[in-house]
Design a protein around this nucleic acid. Sequence first.
RNA 1: GUGGGUGUAGCUCAGUAGGCAGAGCACCUGGUUGUGGCCCAGGAUGUCGCGCGUUCAAGCCGCGUCACUCACCCCA
Length: 416
Amino acid sequence: MSKIQKIKGFSDLFCPESTIHTLMENLARQVFATYGCQEVRVPILEKTELFARSIGEETDVVQKEMYTFADRKGRSLTMRPEATAGVLRAFIESGQHSEGTTKLFACGPMFRYERPQKGRLRQFHQLDVEVLGTDAPQADAEVVLMLWTFLTKLGLKNLSLELNSLGCPECRPVFHQRLRDFLSTIDQSQLCEDCRRRAETNPLRVLDCKVPTCKALVEGAPSITGALCPGCDEHFAQVRDILDSAALPYRLNDRLVRGLDYYQRTTFEVVSGEIGSQSAVAGGGRYDGLIRQLGGPDLPGIGFACGMERLALLYGEAQMPAPDFYLAVLDSRALNTALLLAQRLRERGFAGEVSFEARSIKAQMRQANKLGVKTCLILGQDEMEKGQIVVKDMATGVQKTIGQDDLEQALGFRKP
RNA sequence: GUGGGUGUAGCUCAGUAGGCAGAGCACCUGGUUGUGGCCCAGGAUGUCGCGCGUUCAAGCCGCGUCACUCACCCCA
């Protein structure tokens, strides 16, 4: 029979990677809770329209990267490509939005039909925070601090925080016009093929191009920072001021662009130079018109998402805890007794393995050694007959024979 | 969607100029009547991704195909 393989861009996580993911998720939950975030679990499948309306009909994500299909009654459904839309939909639908600021944490798998590469899978996992109901610059600063605190507690270093303001519906069109004017003054034929297209469709993206010739050409392009309206300018200044006071190191990057249409004002990204080309480990920003756009009240919001696979690339080796014991069985008539003894220990919270077959003691000792257990228990014919068991300390090699009833004590049972 | 690289033992990979399929690690057995690590001796393990072609002969050359991977695009 032929093997069935997993589908492209989907991965199976075994230990220690699965442990790293669990650990990161738990730490995120814990850190974000200190800021008042409450966890929300939302569906993986949503109506396609939700993403089309929030992310933006014209974005690449919606145009060509979504897992979209018709259900059995012909309704168009989509596997979520990001978390924000679903969380906001749930927030709006729950109707619990009259209580001032709401801070939500969500996590889980997201899906995008892209060509896989380092740090990018078709099913990937994000940690997501949304702070809804306030446009205070303090909230922006708090969200950034929350993210940075989490990454620091994860032990990640050499990360760089990039910060920008994209302006609001009032000042952004002004900047777009200035940018278009600028682009029309330069020799279009010098731009790369992608940029010639982007100059029309999404001029902001031209600023972000990595091709050296394009970089040089847009050197003198106008900066969004200089085009902000007084309101946005003041808001951004306050956010920076707080982050300065908190001594949080960031880099202003007026070329920082977000891929989703709903972002405005404060946007930020955390990048690493150590994980290949997909260098953004987290990204987010403010989306003040979005809740209303999704049929909810006119409330502002800000949030971010962390890519867990990318964090995992930066995370060191996970230490897998060694089991407490290995129970070697030398006589096949002792196998049942051994299993019951192990069960007794496991009920007390000890972790360990018990042999399912009476192999040579040498083989079983080797196994105990390989598992790295602190204690090896040996049950043979002699011990069986006397109701005893051998307890061997693997580090010192010292062993003693004790009554089976005294096992918990010998292993250092501590009350839970 | 586009381009490059790689598919050989459980894992990491050698394999010269087409001529018997290899190493290290891991695993198993023994060196100890019931005692691990180190050491020594021995052992098992292959659709050389798959298909077609060239050839007396293909892991190696050609074509196709699938998978993985990195990069572009895009993004967390």
